[in-house]
Design a protein around this nucleic acid. Structure first.
Lengths: 126, 126, 126, 126
DNA sequence: GTGGTCTAGACCACA
DNA sequence: GTGGTCTAGACCACA
């Protein structure tokens, strides 16, 4: 369900947070779904439970999951977070555009690139 | 010329590297231009000279500047790096598209957004 | 009669204790009233019976209810506890005042606020 | 500067967070002041550095301090937080009033109590 | 010296 | 079994 990339310079707990966040905002994990237990996931990923704990703590703090003591962690109602995530993506796009225009790349070139990525995407599915 | 943001979580040396890199690839600093001396810049930014040294070392390692002993640091011929930087931006765009498509954002929506950013950009210049 | 909030960070048994305690000290449940049976309440709230048992044990320990073997749990004579509860509330008020004065809030501001809450209260009842 | 109460049921890291938070919102620690280093404070309080780290992380997340890598932690500009803290206190007062009115305590009794606390306060200073 | 991450392992509260 | 806290100790990046 989740894979750690040890070549990634980002800390492990952050990778775990991001992976689950994507699963949640993209609807793979749905509201009220049970998260894997801290210990289970720790064993599965060969990671220290403390590190998973930290990741789950972060996810809880950001509202993606909630904890019921003695029972485990569960996915929160996430509809609001989907919009937030869309805004975040558009924000990232804005930054790319900004850098691009400064570097003399035109809007047309950016749009062409989007089409290319879109095609690649469809190819994957075919 | 350069401003350090102490509340930015990225290390100072990295901020310095990035700022100069942008000035260079976007043509503000041109080939053979002299870089400010380590000491001067350190004083100007109230930063430890070791940190500037490290930033310059990194810029040299990546080919953006070169050192002449006893004379200082100079901007390299950067034409090649401009292409590299363009590729980097397109790479970032690819990642944004990827996230966007997974989140159900369409190519059309992305293109509309690009137009909006483009307009904002021109407004600034008017 | 009682609602559990799974997103509340407090343990479930504690929520149950507090809810009943309020019902008792505020006179909603009166001396000699029969408490719902452990099993009934467990089913009703979809909670582990052990958890209800623990809550009832705590309520008994603190004197709010008593157990008659084979017949169930009953509300104790609670007059004394009402005074105790009043003291508790005044104690909480003392703490708030303490924080308030340290933060530069005046007694007058606190009193005005009390009046506002009082008004809101009456409005609810009208 | 800070004292840990081992009889307090709240976790140590939370006590540390609260203590510093009060020092900051009540103006004892001012913007740009340097926080004690993680290690120093750990030794001083005979607490594991990890626990201090966690407390500082929480303070940073909530905006009270910021970290400069390799240099230490510093108090953020806190003017905004003072208002927030005042609101928090009034919120706590609201809850107390709520419980009080339900328990049959009158607004007048609450106000009298405030005056008493106020007097006690002044006595301390005399 | 300063903070950041992670592991190993213990102990506790809760269900 | 489930999460929460804490310690001891290591190793790393940054200034």
């Amino acid at each position: 369900m989740i894979l750690i990339d040890y070549k990634d310079s980002r800390p492990i707990y952050e990778q775990v947070v991001d992976k689950f966040r994507l699963l949640i905002v993209n609807g793979v994990l749905k509201a009220e779904d049970k998260m894997p237990s801290v210990r289970t996931l720790a064993v599965e990923l060969s990671i220290n439970p403390n590190t998973i704990q930290r990741a789950y703590g972060e996810l809880e703090r950001r509202g993606y999951i909630y904890t019921v003591k003695g029972r485990g962690n569960f996915v929160s109602d996430t509809e609001g977070y989907k919009d937030e995530y869309r805004s975040e993506i558009f924000g990232r796009l804005d930054e790319v555009c900004d850098s691009a225009f400064k570097a003399g790349i035109t809007a047309g070139e950016l749009k062409d690139r989007i089409d290319k990525v879109k095609e690649g995407e469809s190819d994957d599915k075919d």
